[in-house]
Simulated assay, not measured.
Amino acid sequence: MPPRTSLPRRAAKSPTLRKLSVVIAIVLAYQIWLSVQAGGKVGPGVGADRDERGRFPVDVELGFAPERYHILRLQKHGRIAGTDGQVVHLRGVAPAGVDALAREYWIKHIEAPERGS
């Protein structure tokens, strides 16, 4: 009778499990990268001017003119108040919405709007 190999050793030899572990590692690395780069996108003063519901306005800067897809994605987190070139003005954004917006790879920067705008 041949010697029995352990389960971890057999799993390491399985091409399917190796491919699956590579895919899982890539997805985890991408999620970590999104979290790390999201920290530098939110400018100072975002969320300082909250209303009675705890929501606030933000200006979302993209690296390009927004298209329908981007506007629809931004509407999930607040009301669109207009656009100025590559900047989309959102109102009524919750703190969780800012976190979700910052994780979008196509968003360049999130700022508090200037007073009077």
Rank of each mutant, 00 (worst) to 15 (best):
M1G: 07
R10Q: 13
R68G: 03
E111N: 04
V36F: 11
K41T: 07
G45Y: 11
K108H: 08
I107N: 04
V27C: 11
G47Y: 02
G40V: 12
D51N: 15
V23A: 13
S35Q: 10
E52D: 12
L62E: 12
V42F: 10
T16Q: 07
R53A: 14
L28N: 15
S6M: 02
V27L: 14
S14F: 06
P3Q: 03
G92D: 08
F64M: 14
K13E: 14
P15V: 07
P95Q: 00
R91T: 03
L62D: 10
A94T: 09
R115Y: 00
G39F: 14
T83K: 02
P3D: 02
V93L: 02
I71S: 07
H77A: 08
K41E: 06
R9M: 07
K76Y: 00
L17G: 05
P2A: 01
A25R: 15
G43M: 11
A100D: 06
R9D: 06
K19E: 10
Q37T: 15
R4C: 03
R53Y: 09
A100G: 01
A38F: 13
R68A: 12
Q37C: 12
E114G: 08
G85A: 05
K108E: 09
M1T: 02
T16W: 04
P8K: 06
T83Q: 07
S117N: 04
E111T: 10
S6K: 00
V88H: 00
V27D: 15
V22F: 11
H77I: 05
A94K: 08
A102N: 04
F56R: 11
A11L: 10
W106D: 03
A81N: 03
V42S: 13
D51A: 15
P95C: 01
L62Q: 10
P44I: 07
L90M: 02
P8I: 03
W33N: 13
K13T: 02
I24D: 10
M1R: 00
E111A: 05
P3Y: 04
A102H: 03
Y105K: 02
Q75K: 10
L72D: 11
G43D: 15
F64W: 08
I71F: 05
A29W: 09
V36L: 13
D84G: 01
S21V: 07
R4D: 01
T16R: 14
A102Q: 02
V36E: 10
L34S: 12
P113R: 07
P2Y: 00
